[in-house]
Design a protein around this nucleic acid. Sequence first.
DNA 1: ATTATTAGACGGACTGGTCAGTCCACCTTA
DNA 2: TAAGGTGGACTGACCAGTCCGTCTAATAAT
Lengths: 209, 209
Amino acid sequence: MNDQQRPTRIHKSPEQRRREVLEAAAAVFSEVGFRCTEMDRIAERAGAGKGTVYRCFQGKEALFMATVEKALEDLTCYVNDVVDPLEDPLEQLRMGIHRYLEFFEQNPETVELFIQERAEFPRNGKPLYFVYQESHREKWRQRFETLIEQGRMRSDMSPALAQEVFSDLLYGAVFSQRLAGDRESRSRKADEIVDLLFRGILRPDSHSG
Amino acid sequence: MNDQQRPTRIHKSPEQRRREVLEAAAAVFSEVGFRCTEMDRIAERAGAGKGTVYRCFQGKEALFMATVEKALEDLTCYVNDVVDPLEDPLEQLRMGIHRYLEFFEQNPETVELFIQERAEFPRNGKPLYFVYQESHREKWRQRFETLIEQGRMRSDMSPALAQEVFSDLLYGAVFSQRLAGDRESRSRKADEIVDLLFRGILRPDSHSG
DNA sequence: ATTATTAGACGGACTGGTCAGTCCACCTTA
DNA sequence: TAAGGTGGACTGACCAGTCCGTCTAATAAT
């Protein structure tokens, strides 16, 4: 009369396990948020026991940060793999905006992870998102400077400010799109957004100073 | 041998109590986040007992949402009181951006509350921030439309898109400023940002189509 | 090829700490 | 003197992280 289920234990490679746990964690964290996520739930979703999860990652916090880091690496690759080979800075800008918006449209749960990171670890210093952003700042600023040197961008405009406006806008667009929930696809409008940033909203003949 | 402190109980008006608790709650919530906030801590900060806090507000969640709503009302007033009386839509836009950025610079903890709201109540539907935003959407769209009718704004540009870009940028700027932690004051750069949005980054003679 | 041995992978019961919310004895004030 | 505002001790639920008996699979021995 022993109808106990055999739990079908399987030994997998450490990398395989780690990947499975990480994937499950990203899913659960982005679905219910850091605090409401129970480690048991992640274990269950990964098809593993709690002990296994704790062998792969030091604890809940470390596991969460690993999911954030993974997402940032994915984002960086998605943008840079296409943008870096381009020659024209203007094309890099245009394509950068496009790829960035597209990435978040295809991986909406990523936004959730970034929100959670900032919300739950306010004392951990700068969120990883901004650490990554900063590591690319110099590269992008040079692109703006090149545009000015080439006489294509207004020389009375600070490249640093332009860069900040671009990155603030992208950040805001992605968050708004996800949080407001009812907006149209931004990535399909990437070209229009680029046009606005390049040429402004006013008619050329109407601004005299 | 009784050196027990007399707790100096004072009966205050319900409104006074409520205000004090709300203020304390906003401070603690924005300092340590929703989850890490202990109701005991809010009570202590408000100079009241836990029971008193629970008489003023139904529970932790209700108290938190009340702080968010209060912050949104303050923001709305700070912007609209100055913007609405203006006649020129372009001036309204310029001043709106300025006041918005200024508000968050003067009330940085407000950003924290908005982050927390979204992070902790993902299933509550749209965050209050976006509910408020939506309630002003129509008004702002009409301002853009007026600009087009007056021939001052490019007629090939969708007012709806322009509006979204403006609001996404503001949202992103405020969050970035707070989260990245090391940016310069945005409100002092409001005019430059406005200039970028109005005229674009490119030299007028360089875009031929 | 088959069986014996064992390191260590595995899962899940258990523990201990943490708080949200309750409850009631006390105190203020009218 | 009584009505009801007040504060803080208490309770019960919840869950991260631990611990250990069980089970797998790689290797050794035959």
